[in-house]
Design a protein around this nucleic acid. Structure first.
Lengths: 204, 204, 204, 204
DNA sequence: CATGAATGAGTTTTCATTCAT
DNA sequence: CATGAATGAAAACTCATTCAT
């Protein structure tokens, strides 16, 4: 017994993953526009036909990559939100996890940024909305955590939506500076320090 | 009185400016890639030939726009740096001015971001280096101001380069959130609050 | 029997050849500059994409055609050079073969001339050098044959390089006059007569 | 008295000549297509407007240059034809004069060749016919000289048209080789030697 | 006469996507 | 499923020529 029941499925996933890996590296390095489908197929060692068998379009690959990362990130946040325990500790843990994820997935991060301001051009509406949705849910998760803080008495009442946007902004801005000054800038230090200062300002 | 001094000179600048204005709006809306030279010439009401009479390439227009904004921003910072007076007050004034500039020139800001992560693809080396230079000088100006604070005893000694990168990151992150959530997010409030918190953390 | 060995391979060559044939006729008639890629694709009944699948550029097609002809010509000369036997007979045979080739490939000849004096403009360095190389090797082959004549005692010692250039010049000049006065000028007669007279002048 | 009655006319000719000189150098170096009207105006230090005041088109300049050279050449031939005296001496003198002219006007020669095989593309019909006419008259003049030789009993009867085309061809072929191998090829030597050999073959 | 800004038709080339094999 | 040849719309850019000043 013990037959491989999903041989072909695995193979399918293999090729799909190979394509994504190649595209990830290329998008991260050169961006979406500068990367041609030819670059991707050559990088992945597959044919044009295969690329279009597994993905509807170049855009689809980019969306898939973006989605993976945003999904991971969102899950992390929602998990933190749903977790019980002290808000301050929760935030501490979260920051560390976020930094960890970013350090591990720099290429994904790069792709996210390369794509971000051209979203409307790169993705069709269907996708753009999904991406926008991720960002909304990310913000909402952060908002919830801040609300938990307020409810628990750790923070004094404040405009939690505004605070969530600020916290997102901080994280994003530090990401950018980190990606452009990797040698002499520690993202995790900066994030801890900066978020710390902000949180301090709403502490009771 | 009040005669127009030089008809033809004005006309020249007129067309150049018209092209830049049209490109600004288009780049801000659709980004560099999605904007065709045809879009620009139609938007400006000029011919292809005129576009290429005043600019060497589409890239050249984008660079010119980016440059304008970065220049203004850099001047503001360097002016603050060279100004005498209390560091804290200086920073307060600066923040207000920056916010003012951004509110006035949202389109420029948008173009800057639309172009930022594709720089290497959009601009050739010659230009990329110039742009990179602007960012370096911007960081250095911020650094200088922080050093002034340390020397004057307002701040305790700290890694001013890191701090400058953090401050840039904060401003940038808030810009992004502002550009994407304009209705319910006040860039200037957020900037004041966030920078305030960070500065507080290095105050003596 | 007589089956077509490889369908798809043939097809590939078919299109490539069709493009070359169309370009040959057009270049010969109108020259390189007056022929647009559109002319070629329409003439060949293929799409723009196909043209650029088989050739890197319009220039590449012109080079390919030039190369074919120069190659044939060079081979003919080098074969004559390497052949044993009496020099005078060798030259006689060669002249006949050259004339034969030209009569058969008038269009190629025309393209060669249409392209010759704009080489530097039409071809980039990479190609120009290859073309220049052909001409050098052609001259050297002729030179070798003349040296054989001197060594064998058929010709008296003379500047063989100069002689080679003269012989090339004669052939080329007669080609030109022939191409422009085809009705009332026999290239092969003229070549036999003229080369005969020159050869006579170095005979012992 | 002694007023300059044709001041402006001279000036007119001056500019015209300046433009032609600049175009001559450029066409000789880069050819007709690679030379833009901008190159010419910059080379001549005049405005676009001036160029088009003195010449109807770029083509017109090229025609004017070609025409000058062909005219000089034709005059030389027709003068020789009309001159009395021994045919052989006449031919000797002519060859020397032709060589002299070519050595003096290499740039003109280059332009003539750069333009020759693209004539139909560069010149409109009106001009092409004029150029073709020059070549016809050149051939006819040579033909006449050969006929003189036959009539005077110096040459034996032969197809003088064919001979004229051969002589033109020889001259042209040697020109080409000379232009492409100037360092180690003497056009005048080669012409004397080659024409000598041909003429010898029709001598009685 | 002189200027040079303005024109726009026309050119080569790219590249995401398809589909017959 | 896999291949890669074939497609053609679309893009950036050039440049001879004109004409208002």
């Amino acid at each position: 017994m013990n037959m491989k029941p999903k041989g072909s499925l695995n193979k399918k996933n293999d090729i799909e993953q190979t394509i994504k890996r190649a595209a990830l590296a290329l998008f991260a390095e050169k961006g979406f526009h500068a990367t041609t489908t030819r670059d991707i197929t050559e990088g992945a060692g597959v044919s044009k036909g295969s690329l279009y068998w597994y993905f509807r379009s170049k855009e689809d690959i980019a969306f898939s990559l973006s989605s993976d990362m945003l999904n991971d990130f969102l899950k992390m946040l929602e998990h933190a939100r749903d977790e019980r325990g002290d808000v301050l500790e929760k935030i501490d843990r979260l920051i560390k996890k976020v930094a960890e994820l970013y350090y591990k997935e720099v290429e994904y991060l790069r792709v996210l940024w390369k794509v971000r301001f051209d979203r409307d051009y790169i993705f069709r509406k269907e996708y753009t909305e999904k991406v926008a949705n991720y960002y909304t849910r990310i913000r909402q998760a952060i908002e919830s955590i801040m609300e938990q803080g307020v409810r628990s008495g750790a923070f004094r009442p404040h405009d939690t939506k505004q605070m969530a946007l600020i916290l997102m902004g901080i994280s994003e801005g530090l990401e950018i500076e980190w990606l452009e000054n990797m040698e002499d800038f520690s993202f995790s230090d900066a994030l801890i320090k900066t978020v710390g200062a902000i949180i301090a300002s709403v502490k009771k």
